[in-house]
């Protein structure tokens, strides 16, 4: 428990830091408004043509996209920082500190992400209400479960990004890995379009890929909550987090062993 306290403290400090530089968060909030507004224009134009989109009517579709974008835009950015720590050799100094580097970054991420998530929620809810009214069939009793699945989606996103960022131990220019992963979340992760609209075979494959558990699963559960489905999907989500955590730790251990820092 004592070892946990220092990470809780790091998260707290990160939150304070985030609040001190609130303008940065507002900037991402404005981008969020732009993207959602464009999506609303797009889907309203599609629905005006009378297109059949299965279980997704315009109300559910817009709220689905709002939640998907909310997750994609709330995760704190750390990729470049970690990559640079490795590339510049700065990680050698951070490893000696009384914390685990990956855990420290995770605590830092959680602190900043919680604030960004709150800011985005303050924007998202009125935005959804203005564009399509309240979410049909939504009940506040499901909210705690929805929050859990959103936070787990963000944790999974952190783990994958961290594993990719640590590739800097072997690859000098690792930024393209992040771009590609991010676009996989946009597409196969269902951020831009619900997976149910994919061709059947592709849907059956993509719904079990890890990308879907970052955005699709939380957005789907928010717009159409079902306890049985929640227990199943949250279980798989948790499994993916553990798996990615093990992979990340493995990469970190291997990377640290081959670390070669010159100078001081």
């Amino acid at each position: 428990m004592k070892s946990m306290m220092k990470y809780i403290f790091v998260a707290k400090v990160s939150m304070q830091e985030a609040l001190a530089y609130s303008m940065n968060f507002l900037g991402r909030g404005v981008f969020y408004i732009i993207i959602i507004s464009i999506m609303v224009f797009l889907w309203k134009a599609i629905y005006a043509q009378g297109v059949d989109t299965g279980d997704y009517d315009v109300n559910r579709m817009i709220w689905y996209l709002i939640i998907g974008e909310l997750i994609a835009l709330s995760g704190a950015r750390f990729y470049e920082e970690v990559s640079n720590d490795v590339k510049t050799g700065n990680i050698a100094y951070l490893m000696n500190k009384p914390y685990h580097y990956v855990n420290y970054q995770f605590a830092h991420y959680i602190g900043k992400t919680v604030i960004q998530l709150l800011v985005n929620c303050i924007i998202a809810i009125p935005l959804g209400l203005i564009y399509v009214g309240s979410l049909d069939g939504f009940s506040f009793k499901y909210l705690p479960f929805i929050i859990v699945t959103i936070l787990m989606g963000l944790c999974l996103d952190f783990m994958v990004n961290m594993a990719l960022a640590l590739s800097a131990f072997w690859v000098e220019e690792n930024e393209p890995f992040r771009w590609i992963y991010q676009k996989l979340v946009f597409t196969l992760g269902g951020m831009l379009i619900p997976l149910e609209l994919f061709p059947e075979k592709l849907y059956q494959i993509s719904r079990f890929l890890p990308f879907a558990f970052v955005t699709y699963v939380p957005a789907k559960l928010t717009t159409d909550f079902n306890m049985t489905e929640f227990l199943q999907l949250a279980g798989i989500q948790f499994g993916y987090i553990i798996l990615m955590m093990l992979i990340t730790m493995f990469i970190y251990q291997r990377g640290v062993k081959k670390l070669n820092v010159n100078g001081g």
Partner: peptide, 15 residues
């Protein structure tokens, strides 16, 4: 990386 990044959007529009 960037070319592949852009190509992913073609996938979205195709779907």
């Amino acid at each position: 990386g960037m070319a592949l990044n852009n190509a992913s959007f073609a996938f979205f529009w195709w779907i």
